[in-house]
Nucleic acid binder design. Structure first.
Length: 560
RNA sequence: UGGGGUAUCGCCAAGCGGUAAGGCAACGGGUUUUGAUCCCGUCAUGCGGAGGUUCGAAUCCUCCUACCCCAGCCA
């Protein structure tokens, strides 16, 4: 980082403050965090914030961060998700400590701990059905009733648990519960479930188990086994903290982690719920989890958001306990900011109309040179300039009454600068039978490449262009927000009602400067005056160049 | 409703008894061969509400209000 670059303002983060204090007071020697996704879907922006927080904190304080799959529910989880999550975390630029970890790595230990609780008289096998158990649990204002199986002899519970494990009972027939307090105002403490029967294959443990631990009976213990010091989770788990601590206090765990909750990231115009994202995929509203319109990490990647930009966005978000909604413009700003600094400039005409330079011979190919970046030394690119060019339809008007301030483009009879090339004058238009402009005839002003035009010639502005004969045809996919409602999943209407019908558009007849065909997939360019576009990760090739629009340039022009 | 949590500019958010940081957005202006970038400036006599304590309150006390979460054999 150059000394000229101003240090980014320190963003508030109460968890970082706690860690600093703990390190200061020697409450812990080194910080250990973990990112604990359940492999039941793809990671999204919200997870990106959590990843940046957990890995970032470990990095900042010289500690470590584990990647641990919370795979305690085989009915919702799949190996595909495990693989995708690992790829996403790596792509974001983080290295987890040691091997990837799984809750399932500790299933034997959990089982032994469950037996321990039974022997201590702190857990029992309960035969109540789900409905009965719900009834026994009581309600907010009414305390629950003890299960009739609560005082079952430990030996019997031990035997039953063993038989549950061996698959002797049907799913739902029995559960193992902790014996805590059926009248607790915190529902999580009303004899929570530790194990339930699930006769399903598990992506990691196969058919070894017929019972699986609950989130509550797993999470704190996993943290303790791994020596996690600061277990960071989202607000909705705050109610579980007393239970998290109850297990740590009642089991011979090797360490005592502490849980801290922060407010998850919510973005307006966006849906971040694995269930809903999965629905978009399953209903084929989008092309997949990595559709460029998806707020998934793989979707944002496909869209052209750089990992660095996503990290910058996340690190710029204060960490607090309030549950707010961040304006999508904040994300977009981080993306533009990063892409402006790092992407090569290029020209692409999205809606072409032919421009014929009448005073340039057909056989001539002049080579213009243009910097790859206006400020950084990213080299030069060569642009073939020929008699026939393409410019964007929106950059020309026959209306000579348009003021210079309102229309800084080409007007019939007037001048405009062709970016990195000549100043030209529009002389006449050729129209088709339908009245549509087919060609614009123009003449170049000699000596204006890299030079100001002679006195009296005032170009209205600068427009981009591509040689019609030397340029290349390309496909550009234009994306817009998936939802046209700021809070698609709030209110009565189903979130699917708020889908933006114009969130995807394909432009098949775009023209790009020839140098772009050499691009490597996933390279982002700034198409000048238009925005940022990425060579598609899968579909781009020199033969069939396909670009995805990442995001448009800031547009302060009110009349557009 | 019982419990847990949160309320400070349009959005996010500092502030921890001494007289309202910052980012995004918005709005002016300057530079510019991208209507971009960059630069400069404007933007809360006000901190959910009502009382109270104090020389002094966003910060302390009391009461009230709103919103979020839990009441799965999901995580």
């Amino acid at each position: 980082m150059s000394s000229k670059e101003t240090a980014p303002a320190r963003v508030s983060n109460f968890i970082r403050d706690i860690i600093e204090a703990d390190l200061q007071s020697n409450a812990c020697a080194a910080v250990v965090t973990r990112f604990p996704p359940e492999p039941n879907g793809y990671l999204h922006v919200g997870h990106a914030k959590s990843i940046c927080l957990n890995f970032g904190l470990a990095e900042q304080f010289g500690g470590q961060c584990n990647l641990r799959f919370d795979d305690t529910n085989p009915s919702k989880e799949e190996q595909e998700y495990v693989d995708a999550i690992k790829a996403d975390v790596e792509w974001l630029g983080f290295d987890w400590a040691g091997e990837v970890k799984y809750a399932s790595d500790y299933f034997d230990q959990f089982y032994a701990w469950a037996q321990h609780l039974i022997r201590e008289g702190k857990a029992y096998v309960c035969d109540l059905s789900a409905e009965e158990a719900s009834e026994y649990r009581g309600w907010a204002t009414t305390p629950g009733k003890n299960s009739p199986y609560r005082e079952r002899a430990p030996e019997e519970s031990l035997d039953l648990l063993e038989r549950m494990k061996n698959g002797e009972f049907a799913e739902g027939a029995r559960v193992l519960r902790a014996k805590i307090d059926m009248s607790s105002p915190n529902m999580n403490l009303r004899d929570p479930i530790l194990y339930r029967i699930r006769k399903q294959s598990h992506h990691q443990t196969g058919d070894k188990w017929c019972i699986y631990p609950s989130y509550d009976f797993a999470h704190g213990q996993e943290d303790a086994i791994e020596g996690v010091t600061h277990s960071i989770c989202t607000l909705e788990f705050a109610d579980h903290r007393p239970l998290y601590e109850w297990f740590l206090d009642n089991l011979p765990v090797p360490s005592k982690p502490r849980q801290y909750e922060f407010g998850r990231l919510n973005l307006n115009f966006t849906v971040t719920s694995k269930r809903k994202l999965k629905q978009l995929v399953d209903d084929s509203v989008v092309s997949g989890w990595d559709d460029p319109r998806m707020p998934t990490i793989s979707g944002m990647r496909r869209r052209g958001f750089s990992a660095r930009a996503i990290r910058s966005f996340c690190n710029g978000l204060p960490v607090s306990k309030s549950d707010g909604v961040v304006d999508i413009a904040q994300l977009e700003s981080a993306i533009r900011d990063d892409l402006d600094k790092h992407s090569t400039r290029a020209m692409c005409v999205l809606d072409p109309v032919k421009l014929v330079i009448s005073n340039l011979d057909e056989a001539v190919v002049e080579t213009m040179t243009a910097p790859a970046h206006p400020k950084l030394e990213l080299g030069l690119r060569e642009l073939p300039f020929t008699r026939e060019l393409y410019i964007d339809r929106a950059d020309f008007s026959e209306d000579t009454t348009l003021s210079r301030k309102k229309f800084k483009r080409l007007v019939l009879g007037e001048y405009v600068r062709l970016r990195s090339a000549y100043v030209i004058k529009a002389d006449e238009v050729v129209k088709g039978d339908d009245g549509q402009i087919v060609e614009i005839h123009a003449s170049l002003v000699p000596g204006t490449v890299g030079e100001n035009p002679p006195e009296g010639i005032k170009p209205r502005g600068v427009i981009h262009w591509v040689s019609a004969t030397e340029g290349k045809r390309a496909t550009v996919r234009v994306y817009d927000r998936l939802f046209n409602h700021p809070a698609p999943d709030r209110g009565e209407a189903d979130f699917m009602q708020h889908l933006n019908p114009e969130s995807y558009r394909v432009l098949e007849n775009c023209w790009v400067e020839p140098g772009l065909l050499d691009a490597a997939p996933e390279t982002v360019f700034q198409f000048e005056r238009e925005g940022y576009f990425v060579a598609d990760r899968y579909d781009f090739s020199a033969e069939t160049p396909v670009f995805n629009k990442t995001i448009g340039l800031v547009d302060n022009w009110a009349g557009r």
